[in-house]
């Protein structure tokens, strides 16, 4: 397994470099301009000077290599310096800077991570916790009313877009009932019971909306996987052994059914980091998704490039993790 992992990791290096170049190329080819959103009162000559100050007059390969140097060398060095409190070289390195904010992209990402992990991560966990029991019961009592209702809710959760459910919830719970705030306060610091409750209230709606979506997806996976396994001979064997139905279901069927589900869950983790662009926008949870969309709208190429590349790294990484997990969970799979 270790050899396999190392081999896979080695292979990801050229893959990621290639991906970064493709992203760069695509962003460069896109007819987008960082001065496009400036007020009309700014004359074209000034816009041209702004573009030059951003380095846009350089040829593409120079800009790409510069980004590579900033991202692969300067930023890691900076992180090492910060973590270990040491000084490497003169410490005056060019960092990947956002064009819109003129601040280092990595700092922006670090600032955004908490709310994204809280809201999107929590919704993922909640979604999984809801989905697994629903999937198990739906499969075990296939075509029962529980299964039918579960199927209906999954369909709703899956097909109704979050910008609809989100706005609907805001209208009901913020405008009519006034229970939850419609705007997320990213500056809230949880320090006592009252602020904790405040945090819970402002997280309730976005987490619910996203959890519904996640649960819909995962519960269907869970149900399908359970159904696959329920009809296997080894389940009959387990019953023939005279095991309790609980044991049959939870030890034999559930554990085997979880293998594909766990890998699906692992594969979707990068989405948590990617944030939920729409939901973050609807509830004003200004996390990574909102950062990305603002970057795209404002043609903030270093920001978009860095964010999408980090997502690419996460996706490649979690693909590997999913494969390794599969190998650990399913003794039939051996990579070496």
């Amino acid at each position: 397994m270790l050899n396999y992992t190392i081999r896979r990791l080695m292979f990801t290096v050229p893959v990621l470099l290639f991906i970064s170049f493709i992203i760069f190329l695509l962003l460069d080819l896109a007819p987008n301009d960082p001065t496009g959103n400036l007020p009309m009162t700014i004359p074209p000559e000034v816009r041209q000077q702004i573009r030059e100050s951003l380095g846009l007059d350089q040829p593409i390969w120079v800009r790409y290599l510069l980004w590579c140097k900033q991202f692969f060398i300067n930023e890691p060095l900076n992180i090492i310096e910060q973590w270990f409190g040491i000084q490497i070289g003169d410490g005056d390195r060019l960092r990947v800077r956002s064009w819109a904010t003129r601040s280092p992209v990595v700092d922006l990402i670090v600032e955004r991570l908490p709310q994204t992990l809280w809201v999107v991560g929590m919704s993922y966990v909640v979604g999984i916790l809801i989905a697994i029991p629903i999937g198990v019961v739906s499969a075990y009592r296939q075509y029962s009313w529980f299964d039918q209702i579960g199927t209906f809710i999954s369909m709703v959760g899956f097909s109704v877009p979050t910008f609809f459910t989100g706005v609907l919830m805001i209208v009901i719970f913020s405008v009519w009932l006034g229970w939850f705030p419609s705007i997320y306060d990213t500056t809230l610091v949880v320090e006592d019971w009252a602020s904790f409750m405040q945090q819970v209230r402002q997280m309730a709606m976005p987490v619910f909306v996203l959890a519904l979506f996640n649960a819909a997806q995962i519960s269907r996976f869970m149900r399908a996987s359970m159904l696959d396994n329920l009809n296997q001979d080894y389940v009959r064997t387990a019953r023939a052994k005279g095991l309790k139905e609980r044991t049959v279901l939870l030890v034999h069927v559930l554990r085997n059914s979880l293998i594909p589900v766990v890998t699906v869950i692992a594969l979707n983790v990068p989405q948590v980091f990617g944030g939920a662009i729409i939901t973050e926008q609807v509830f004003k949870v200004n996390g990574l998704g909102q950062l990305l969309i603002i970057g795209i709208q404002g043609a903030d190429i270093p920001l978009v490039q860095t964010l999408t590349f980090i997502f690419a790294v996460l996706i490649v990484l979690f693909n590997l993790i999913a494969d390794i997990l599969y190998g650990i969970l399913d003794p039939r799979i051996r990579y070496d």
């Binding site: 007819p31 987008n32 301009d33 496009g36 959103n37």
Partner: peptide, 16 residues
Amino acid sequence: AAVFFGGDQSSPDTFQ
């Protein structure tokens, strides 16, 4: 809008 009002020389769709 970012294309239309953007000054990308290579884009044929700018307002300029």
